[in-house]
């Protein structure tokens, strides 16, 4: 039963992930503490907000540019110079 639950949870994690926003760089779109839901089934396009793996943690940012497998992210409340560049494979989901 436990194994079944864990398998179901793992599958669900790839479809929908629920996260709490920690920090201010996505304000005013998402305030600190706001809950967001992201889906791994949606297409990543420029302008979408995504949850992505970044080192040992996950980050939430808006996609500003996609070139091949390279994705440039920036916060809505960040200076234009503060970009994060990741690989597309690091993206866990697009925020719904």
């Amino acid at each position: 039963m436990m194994l079944l639950f864990k398998t179901f949870q793992h599958s669900l994690n790839n479809v929908l992930i629920v996260r709490r926003v920690y920090g201010h760089s996505m304000e005013p779109t998402y305030q600190n503490g706001r809950l967001v839901i992201a889906s791994g089934l949606l297409n990543v396009t420029e302008g979408k907000i995504v949850v992505a793996r970044h080192g040992s943690r996950e980050i939430i940012k808006r996609v500003s540019l996609i070139r091949g497998d390279t994705v440039k992210l920036k916060g809505d409340n960040s200076s234009p110079h503060h970009n994060t560049v990741i690989q597309a494979s690091q993206i866990r989901g697009v925020v719904i």
Binding site: Y22, G23, H24, E27, L35, H54, R57, S78, S79, H82
Partner: peptide, 17 residues
């Protein structure tokens, strides 16, 4: 149950003051 997702800049965040 619900993990945090970090909304911070790579450099410094919350510098506006």
């Amino acid at each position: 149950f619900i993990k945090d997702v970090h909304a911070h800049c790579d450099l410094f965040c919350g510098v506006y003051d």
